[in-house]
Design a binder for these strands. Structure first.
Lengths: 201, 201
DNA sequence: TTTTTTATTGAACAGTGTTTAATAGGTTTG
DNA sequence: CAAACCTATTAAACACTGTTCAATAAAAAA
């Protein structure tokens, strides 16, 4: 292994080290409460070092953002074993809900944290893939005769909105107080109610 | 008018002056980008003065939060002139959507900005009122025979989730790129699709 | 007029993201 | 091997942030 090669590996390793430290703190404290100094001290480096590997705090954030989408997409694709498209459609919502439940911090990072950076639209390929996956499953349902007369795009958007709305209210925990039910209960029964409606279409 | 009374009025006036300055900057730049120093300089006072009238930045934020809910609730109640409960139910969603469209910054403040303070659950009376209003309209629909066999609480939550999901995705403008449609188009057609589903229940 | 209360201020503290000049160390070259 | 070079790292500095607080000017009460 050449020296140049080793150096390159070391660079990648350091990149990863920063990301590991950042992930820990980001998922623990959220975007605003995470500071470059926190991350630096977590991995026992000086704050300045981080800027040798990342342009700014936002770039680190976006890396984790992508990471989250990759994780979600993986779990969405796991539902591919279900053969019936409509059953798969219903499962996809549950995948989303489970993701919000078990990876609440990722969910916050992915969907709820406001982006301070301007680099919008970049690095959203995985997000796009996730949407297209859902859209594809809905198309398969429509091919089977379900959801007749409904536009695929709007139905996809509406499904996403509804499930995201449920998960988003769950993650912010703004609702359980009003309804005197646990967040999990609301989320699951809310989704069941949604499926009950959609089942009649 | 006694001196004490005048002083009290001056205090209220200053309170309002701060809130006016804060509103302008909060709605312009969002929570994190708004600083006490910004607000102070906006109204030509020193940063310290603000702490004579407000406990901290979060208290100012919550005041505007409430303000937003009062505004929303007013527009929700304007739908009371519609006599048929189901038509009123459908209008309520549109009220919400219009609110997100025309008061995007308030919407962000009310539903999307993460609260840093711990004072959760306080001052949410107006929010509760809004939810109960919706719940009441749904109940009236159910009294008329609509939505049979569905739990009022979960249906209320599901409706809120769906509409909030639509508005939330609109406000973050994360979707228009994927669907090659304008945010407004997505939002309105998305809601129509939702109504199309619910109409069959 | 003196005392007391009240509102306002500017400085200070501890924190933030980011930039940069200096530096130590390994790598390459003469 | 020594000199030059490159590269990763650092501490310090800059301009911010929310918040606190002693000093103070102004107004009200005594």
């Amino acid at each position: 292994m050449s020296i140049a090669k080793r150096k390159e590996l070391e660079k990648i390793e350091m990149h990863k080290r920063i990301l590991d430290g950042a992930r820990k703190i980001f998922l623990e404290k959220g975007y605003e409460q995470t500071s470059i100094r926190n991350i630096a001290s977590e991995i026992s480096y000086s704050p300045g070092s981080i800027y040798f590997y990342f342009k700014d705090k936002n770039e680190i954030f976006h890396e984790l953002h992508k990471e989250g989408f990759r994780l979600l997409l993986k779990q969405m694709k796991a539902a591919d074993v279900i053969e019936d498209p409509y059953e798969r459609y219903k499962e996809l919502g549950l995948v989303f809900i489970r993701f919000a439940q078990h990876h609440t911090d990722y969910y916050n990072l992915m969907f709820l944290v406001s982006e301070t950076g301007k680099a919008r639209g970049e690095g959203f390929e995985t997000a796009k893939e996730a949407i297209e996956h859902l859209s594809g499953v809905i198309q398969q349902c429509q091919d089977q005769g379900r959801f007749q007369g409904l536009d695929n795009k709007y139905l996809t958007f509406m499904t996403m909105s509804s499930v995201h709305g449920i998960c988003s209210l769950y993650c912010k925990d703004r609702m359980s107080g009003f309804f005197q039910k646990s967040g999990e209960e609301l989320m699951l029964h809310g989704y069941e109610t949604f499926l009950g409606m959609i089942d009649k279409s």
